[in-house]
């Protein structure tokens, strides 16, 4: 409860939004090598939270904790708490399947399944049985594709393989695939790193639109991108959060010298 009070104090300009996810003294070990040290962070509803920091500082590790993808990393051990709507998702009786349906993920490299575009998007709804008949499923697929702005581009070739699209289109397809399961939180691990500037701009626009419906956490190595798309920013360094808070504040008036140096391009 303490942490909650503290974080809210530091974010007075966001007082209206509620906390969707929060981590409490989260530590992660890979085979006894500690990668995260007592990380506590709040993630606000319908906001974009950017995670920045030099390579290897533990951003991806942190993000994988939020939907328990670390379960699939061999030798990974976690202490501390990750709460979704106040509920600790690392409790024994948590169903990771439902959790991941609610907390979707987009990967660094676009990874469409070797199936048709339609099947890629329909995959989530099918396994979770979100729709009861074919028409509903089609409507959901179309809705998801429209939401990521891919519909016009692929409407006439829904049955061609997802891998036949361009990199940027593939990444949007993956986002469409993620939102088709009707998640509430979307995690994006460097979604634009494999893309050219135009495709990147397209995704950034998309994030701005998605923000209205979803809670988004995004990892990026581009300071400009973090500044453009996010409301909240957390700066990671050597497995710790050095500073977190309102994006404008972090970028314009950081409290910590390290943050200043990193944003100013002195290291990283």
């Amino acid at each position: 409860m303490n942490t909650k009070k503290k974080t809210i104090d530091t974010h007075t300009d966001n007082d209206k939004s509620e906390i969707r996810m929060k981590t409490q003294s989260l530590s992660v070990f890979y085979n006894n090598e500690q990668a995260l040290f007592d990380v506590s962070l709040d993630i606000y509803n319908n906001r974009v939270t950017a995670l920045i920091g030099p390579s290897g500082c533990g951003k991806s590790t942190f993000m994988r904790c939020l939907n328990r993808m670390n379960d699939y990393v061999e030798g990974c051990r976690i202490t501390g708490k990750v709460r979704l709507d106040g509920f600790n998702i690392y409790k024994d009786n948590v169903d990771t399947i439902l959790l991941r349906q609610k907390v979707g993920m987009v990967f660094q490299k676009p990874n469409p399944f070797p199936k048709s575009i339609f099947e890629n998007v329909a995959y989530g709804p099918k396994i979770h049985k979100l729709t009861s008949n074919k028409d509903e499923l089609e409507a959901l697929v179309v809705k998801s594709l429209k939401r990521v702005g891919l519909w016009e581009e692929v409407a006439d070739r829904l049955s061609s393989p997802g891998t036949s699209l361009s990199g940027g289109q593939q990444q949007r397809l993956c986002i469409a695939r993620a939102i088709a399961t009707e998640p509430e939180v979307i995690l994006m691990d460097e979604p634009c790193s494999a893309l050219d500037p135009i495709a990147t701009a397209r995704i950034e626009e998309l994030i701005a639109e998605l923000e209205q419906r979803y809670t988004i956490v995004i990892i990026t190595h581009s300071m400009q991108q973090a500044e453009r798309v996010s409301d909240q920013t957390a700066f990671f360094h050597m497995g710790k959060i050095i500073e977190s808070g309102n994006t404008e504040k972090i970028f314009n008036d950081p409290d910590n010298q390290k943050t200043k140096d990193y944003i100013g391009g002195k290291f990283g």
Binding site: E18, N45, N46, F87, N93, V94, D95, L99, Q212, R213
Partner: peptide, 15 residues
């Protein structure tokens, strides 16, 4: 779009 804290989550995560 304000999301209500959805209490069903608590239950549906249960094993």
């Amino acid at each position: 779009i304000k999301k209500k804290k959805s209490p069903f989550i608590y239950k549906s995560y249960s094993k």
